[in-house]
Simulated assay, not measured.
Amino acid sequence: MSAERITIPREMLPEDGRFGAGPSKVRAAQVDALSAAGGHLLGTSHRQAPVKNLVAEVREGLHQFFGAPEGYELILGVGGSTAFWDIASFCLVQQKAQHLSFGEFGSKFAKATHEAPFLDPSSILSSEAGTLPAPRPEAGVDAYAWPHNETSTGVAAPVKRVQGADDGALVLVDGTSAAGGLAVDVTETDAYYFGPQKNFASDGGLWLAMMSPAAIERAERLDAQRWVPDFLQLTTAIENSRKNQTYNTPALATLVTLNEQVRWLNANGGMDFAAARTADSAGRVYAWAEAHELAQPFVADPAERSNVITTVDFAESVDAADLAKTLRANGIVDVEPYRKLGRNQLRIATFTAIEPEDVTRLLNCIDHVLER
């Protein structure tokens, strides 16, 4: 029988079939919050009190979630994490950056600073997809950068300052698919930046960064020394964030759904709750893959496996693309692998909004298809 023609019994299916690596499944309570905001908040000015109060609640809620110390500030702006790579290139890298490149997203930031005509060529430490390089102290490097979680491969990296680095060197960590799902000590970074569309289960188009006093001072100093396009001026974002607004008009729906997710996370125990929940979900995937005769975790080293993005390789006898099509036909969506990896693989997100029991149901559905 063609796999695409297999029907999975309704009683086996997950309650919610969204397992994409981004954007995340959005919880019903977030949609309810958006509906409630429709009559009094959506379509109003982001310069006025109702929206500024919402931004203030988001900033305060994230400060609580990350346990950020005094002096660290939650800065936000329009454009997503991609925009922040350019912002950091202009406003946080003084002369030379070192990058860890172990997947698609780490390599993109590396390319941005490496090709910037006003910076020295970057030091780029790479490793094969599914593995993890380590930063190393290097004279002349004033910014060390890497992703906390590589969304394309399912590798998670430690977030620690680089011992032996030059005095004043900053640590810039891309937390886009990690923030809100993996534990992190933000004091080990100077900018822990992320988008809201992964563990925070909102939409894209916004960047947020928990920034240290050293990063803010660097941004102010470089702004006085070099020309920066208005849209990319970090000092402008800092000034506006302190007023609980953004330089450009933000998508209010994104802020509403983000705020509802932050409320939910903090009400249930904050970072400890989130990290335990994703570890539970991911552990189910890895245990299943390790025990299966036709599957295995793509990331070989258990210490490097992500708890928010899981990747599973299949034996040659299994057509993973056909398997993904079958799951999609049955309402289980977005488990296809990252397109550029080109592997016989499924990529299953285990973000905080996803119910761990739904992960088990997904694995049972995969077994059901494979058996046929």
Rank of each mutant, 00 (worst) to 15 (best):
2 S>I: 11
3 A>L: 13
10 R>P: 02
13 L>H: 03
16 D>Y: 05
21 A>Q: 07
21 A>M: 08
28 A>V: 12
40 H>Y: 10
47 R>G: 05
48 Q>A: 15
51 V>S: 03
53 N>G: 11
59 R>F: 01
63 H>D: 13
64 Q>S: 12
73 E>F: 03
83 A>L: 07
87 I>S: 00
93 V>D: 00
93 V>Y: 00
97 A>R: 03
99 H>N: 12
102 F>G: 09
103 G>Y: 06
107 S>D: 15
111 K>V: 10
113 T>E: 06
115 E>L: 13
126 S>P: 04
127 S>K: 10
141 V>P: 03
141 V>H: 04
143 A>D: 00
145 A>C: 15
157 A>Q: 10
160 K>E: 15
166 D>I: 02
167 D>G: 14
169 A>Y: 05
184 V>R: 03
192 Y>N: 05
193 Y>N: 08
194 F>H: 12
197 Q>E: 15
201 A>D: 13
204 G>P: 02
213 P>M: 03
216 I>G: 04
227 W>N: 09
233 Q>V: 08
236 T>G: 15
241 S>C: 04
252 L>I: 15
253 A>I: 00
254 T>L: 06
261 Q>C: 05
262 V>T: 12
272 D>H: 11
274 A>W: 06
274 A>D: 04
275 A>N: 12
275 A>R: 07
277 R>S: 13
280 D>C: 12
289 A>P: 06
292 H>Y: 11
292 H>P: 10
306 S>K: 02
319 D>P: 04
321 A>T: 14
323 L>K: 06
333 V>F: 03
353 A>M: 05
355 E>P: 03
357 E>G: 11
367 D>S: 07
369 V>M: 01
370 L>T: 02
371 E>D: 13
